[in-house]
Structure formats: structure tokens, C-alpha cells
Design a protein around this nucleic acid. Structure first.
Lengths: 186, 186
DNA sequence: CCCCTATACTCAACAAGTTGAATAGGTGCG
DNA sequence: CGCACCTATTCAACTTGTTGAGTATAGGGG
């Protein structure tokens, strides 16, 4: 049970409705803990029953009302406990790597190359988004400046992980494409 | 349903019993598709019912008998279809990143630093294992040599992904440790 | 001789994640 | 004026993945 904790972590950066959380997950957390809206709504309910979050209805005129969730004191304590407990090792589930692992059994490596190209485009898009986010976070300050007395270090460091990951991914995928092309010629 | 495909991919590199598959997963596939032995046994049964793999009992004297699984023609065809179909984007589930995201809410960043150090050790271990595996695969040949007429490119390229991933991970985690230490001093 | 580890697998219960659809008002575009 | 898309959420069914225990045989070390 760990999406719970991802939700608590997300809410620690400010209250949100289920819908808003879904978007927040999409831009910032998706790359290390993805979740569908349905999952979020379900877990928010559970968290509410357990007293870790509180909901309050916000009436809106031009759109449907929403339920905005805040961490309770118990929620904050649970989050602290979670942060300080040892983490289980990361689990990666990357279908592309499975396909590549078996590429020698395929008739046509061209199809996989197309998949690799899609992946490359995706990585570039993500990287661009991440760098935009970083610029916004830094707001002109140098990294050192920001990290030493800027407020939250967490979001910056995880963002950096995303940036480095995508950069490395781009290099690797490019290399794979070259090798697959060589193979196709031979 | 995709552990199925990871199993087919693994079996395409040679027949194996459930137990042997579990070990193969542990050394080579775990980093992009992890599975417990229980999961493997369950899926192997399903694959057998669906006619994608065949089992044959191998009697052994000094240890329990085992059921060795091989791909059937249908299994090979299913694998080919899978490899050529587009891949869904990778899902990462990294608890450490969730904790780091919320580190500013914790009382003691020292606990997270300990977790980061454990992660660093793990990455270094993995990297060492991967490089050993690479040396064994290359067997003295240069990469170019191997990839151009060496037999299977798949396992080499995925191994390379693992190596690059861990190298990058080590750099990033080191950086995180430095920043957390700075934070603790302040 | 006993315990630990390795091989080889099975069973059961549960937790977590995925998929698809339904509802319902509002905004923007041609 | 109709159609598509955005906000905001709920329901239900399903597939995957996790945890923990249990069975049985054999070899090695103290």
C-alpha cells in the first residue's frame, strides 16, 4: 500500500481535489509513481476514513463543486514516518526492454525501431517539460542559491532525477536505433 | 497481462524450469520486469494451458525432478507479435523518490540519507554484476565486432540500458547525499 | 546428528493496479 | 445549434502482483 503515501506526499505540497491531484500526478509524480484518477479517488476515500486527510466541499459557480483534501495532523505524522522508514527497491516495468530482449526472435526489427523512435520523441518531450519546470522553480537563481536557502529541496531533487533519467534515456535509445539499423542492413 | 510476454522472451533464450526461470529473471530481467517465483509458476501454468509453452519432466537423481518449459510454435508466434506491437510507456515505481519528494515535511533528513546510502550501495553492486556480465558476453571482442555478427543483440542492448541506468543513478544519488548533508548543517 | 542452505514446487489469501463506462454541467468553436 | 472537450466524480468488474506458509529431498559444515 504505497500510492497512499504518494498521495500524502503530494498533498504535503498543498491541498487539492481529486481532479487536481490527478493533474499534479501527471506532471510531477507520474514518472516515479503513476496513478489513474480512479485510483486516486479510491485512495483518497480510504485516507479520509482513516483520518489522514480531511475533505471540504468548495462550491464553484461556473463548474461542478469539488472536494478539496488537506492533510490532518495524523496524516502529517504518517507521512513523516513513511519518509523516515527504509524504502523498498525501485521496480521498473518497461515493456520496451522486454521487446528488445527478444528482438532476435522477431522477423522484422523495423517494427521495434519504430517503437524506439516513439520512445525517443516521448523522452524529448518530457525533458523539455522538465526543464521548463526547473526554470520556473529556480526563477533565475543559481542551483546552489536555491538549494541552500530555497524552501523545499525535495521537488527539485526529484525533478533533477527525471531530467537526468530522460537525458540518459535519449542517449541510450539513439544508440539502440543505430544498432538496429546496422542489423537491418546485414 | 505482460509478465506472460517477459516469460516468453526469457524462454526464447533457451528452455528452463520455473526455478531456473526465477533465477534468470533475478540476474537479467529483474531490472526491467521483476517477478517472484510464485508469479512465474502461476503464469507458466497459464501459458501451458494456452498452448504457448510445453512442459516435459526431467528426472534427476540427486535433486527433485523438474518440469522444463519450451516455447511452442504458437508461443514463438505470440512472442513475435508482441515484439512488433507498440509498447506501452514504462511505469516506474520508486518509493525513494516519493520519500525524497516529501523530505521537507520530515523532522530528520538523516534517515533519508541512510536510505540514499543503501541505494547507492545497491547500485554499485548491480553495476559491478552488470559489467561482469558484459565482459562475459563480449568475451574479449570489441562491442562493434560483437554487435555486427555476434548472435543476439537484444540481451546486450538491455544490459547496456542497465549499466547506463545504474551509472546515472550513482551520480544522482551522490548529488542528493551532498545536498541533504548541506541541508542538515543549515 | 542437527541445522542450514539449495533445489523444486504448490496453495491460499490478499492488496494493488487497470479498464471501461456513466453522470452532469460548462466552455469554446465554427 | 450541435459537437467536442474540460471539470469533477463515482461504480463495477477485472487482471496483476505480493506475502506467507508449507512440502519434500539432498548436500555440507560444525
Amino acid at each position: 500500500m504505497s500510492l497512499r503515501h504518494a498521495v500524502l506526499a503530494a498533498l504535503s505540497h498543498g491541498e487539492a481535489s481529486g481532479y487536481e491531484l490527478a493533474k499534479r500526478f501527471d506532471v510531477s509524480v507520474a514518472d516515479f509513481w503513476s496513478a489513474t484518477p480512479q485510483q486516486l479517488y479510491r485512495d483518497l476515500e480510504k485516507l479520509e476514513r482513516d483520518g489522514l486527510v480531511e475533505a471540504r466541499v468548495v462550491e464553484q459557480q461556473r463548474r461542478p463543486n469539488k472536494r478539496v483534501f488537506t492533510l490532518t495532523e495524523d496524516g502529517r505524522a504518517a507521512l513523516r514516518d513513511f519518509v523516515e522508514a527504509p524504502a523498498r527497491p525501485a521496480a521498473i516495468r518497461d515493456e520496451f526492454l522486454v521487446k528488445l530482449q527478444a528482438v532476435d526472435a522477431a522477423a522484422d526489427p523495423g517494427a521495434l525501431a519504430a517503437t524506439a523512435e516513439a520512445r525517443l520523441r516521448r523522452s524529448r518531450d518530457k525533458l523539455a517539460r522538465y526543464e521548463q519546470l526547473r526554470d520556473r522553480l529556480l526563477a533565475g537563481r543559481a542551483e546552489d542559491d536555491f538549494l541552500r536557502h530555497g524552501d523545499p529541496v525535495g521537488p527539485y531533487l526529484t525533478l533533477l532525477a527525471g531530467i537526468l533519467y530522460e537525458e540518459q534515456n535519449i542517449r541510450w535509445t539513439t544508440l539502440v536505433l543505430r544498432r538496429l539499423a546496422e542489423r537491418r542492413e546485414a
